[in-house]
Design a protein around this nucleic acid. Sequence first.
DNA 1: CTGTTAGCGCGTTCAT
DNA 2: ATGAACGCGCTAACAG
Lengths: 339, 339
Amino acid sequence: MPTIHDVAKQAGVAPITVSRVINNSGYVSLKTRERVETAIAALQYVPNSLARSLRSKQTKTIALVLTDITNPFFTTMARGVEDIANKQGFNVIFCNTDESETKQNNYLTVLLQKQVDGILLVPARSHAEPIKLIQSQGVEVVILDRKVPDVQVDVVRCNSEKGAQQLIQYLIGLGHQRIAILTGPEGVSTAVDRVTGYRQALVEAGLEVNDAFICHGEFTQASGYEMARQVLSIVPQPTAIFAGNNFIALGALRALRDANLRVPEDMALVTFDDLPLTLVVDPFLTVVAQPSYEMGQQATELLLARLKGETFREHQELILSTKIIVRRSSGLPLDGRQE
Amino acid sequence: MPTIHDVAKQAGVAPITVSRVINNSGYVSLKTRERVETAIAALQYVPNSLARSLRSKQTKTIALVLTDITNPFFTTMARGVEDIANKQGFNVIFCNTDESETKQNNYLTVLLQKQVDGILLVPARSHAEPIKLIQSQGVEVVILDRKVPDVQVDVVRCNSEKGAQQLIQYLIGLGHQRIAILTGPEGVSTAVDRVTGYRQALVEAGLEVNDAFICHGEFTQASGYEMARQVLSIVPQPTAIFAGNNFIALGALRALRDANLRVPEDMALVTFDDLPLTLVVDPFLTVVAQPSYEMGQQATELLLARLKGETFREHQELILSTKIIVRRSSGLPLDGRQE
DNA sequence: CTGTTAGCGCGTTCAT
DNA sequence: ATGAACGCGCTAACAG
């Protein structure tokens, strides 16, 4: 492959001049520029960004490390990240950890070796060490979607506690008293916070909290299915189910269908996170929607601002607001039902 | 950040010795190795893979360039790629082109600059140039899912023509005579091939091909919705709809629901590609399933074999077989219907 | 506006 | 079993 030297020789200039043309840096006369560009085209020259980055100390690349690339919540977030990054001349590397901290840490190591300028991290677990590792290498990092204790770092997320609380308040308002919650692992902040919000809503309404109605599993359809079966076996059954994310909701929906329970007539179902496929799922789901695209955008802007040298700023926690979207799956007030 | 020199100094050895320890290459005495490893840990040394790759001429990284990262068909494929690549010590960079050739070509340029060892490409359009560009830079490439004319290259895909033909044969067997096909852009081989298979099945059954029943759009829900509305306005209406991919099927399903048509009682619906969410979609869809995970695996193995120097082999086209999965959406034989 | 010098961090080559 | 010298391809810093 041709190098910058070959181009320089062909154009009859010094390598640095070629460099200036490529990067639009410094002064180059129009005539020289044209000769260089001709040579570049003739040789099909492609700059080696490894060499460039080694010298310039920046890769113009950031990474987004997320936990489930099959979930539209995260792919939408990824779009937000990519759009902002590209606009500012940065490339994005996507890494999928499958909610595994081991996979996550392997990726982080690779990314540090590759000298990415910054990392956007949806942490698989609430541990500070991986974040501190990144920071110790002088690489900027912003945490997305979840919070992590005991570490100074920028965070962009939504308020899971409040979102859950409001959703449960809504269900209580419809007359529900036995509400089950099916959510993610205990080591993940969003899963835990949603339970906290759930408890608060019940307590403030003077309702009893039944621990059997609180299920921790995975943020997957399969786990949602299992957890739903589990709570359905409780006597007396809940009258409503709150799914901790969109995939859990889909799994729960299947379990309800298999149990010949109609939604919402026999069981109300609500969830966190909207799904693009939500409009083919019957019944349409009542959800707490999080602005995932904006979360990606904001986190990226924060990261890039730091890369531009705004390191003097305090670390900040940006909390975006959620929105309840009421659709059919939450049903009508219970008193209106004929049982 | 510490470099290999810092580690060497700390351990009282030459940099090259540290290199040997890191890469497990050459002879290093156990004692020296231990001293070096202690120094690495103490300094929190992370090797710079830019420098390493610049020197060694390989990045141990391949890229997967695909057209829609929100589609489970492709994310499943991505898993297949990643699993094989990681097993062989390679990292994977994922790039999403949104079916845009412009985006695709931008990514290809970036990837070549980053000196990836190989590229797996789901081409956005049937043009040979992007592929020839990659090859001209001495980078290995394998084409996935779609075929491209006028270029010598490895391809891993399914037989869209045959899959479509079989599916339509099945519908004809049920008694359908007016079947509409809603598929992707005319510039994409899979979209075109599915139409070809559709035509063949009709012709061989002695049925007339009505061009109004052939719709090209995008491989998206929105486009599926629009195309479905369009064919529903034709008099006489089709009795069955064949969606060119899973997202088109979901869009069509919504359109049918909005038009108060029941599936399959009023209209049969079949599609290419299975969906993990298929089990929450009502009714369950009859599909031609493609082994997307295996496609990713096979393509990666082919690519890595080439990277290991098996360049002498002829370029090959690997065609994996599809499978018809009959579920409820295709309905019963038409004669059995009461109309 | 253009060029010279030097070096980013690492691994290949050859020597000891 | 270990090390010295060199260069991968590029650009920062300085000179002119």
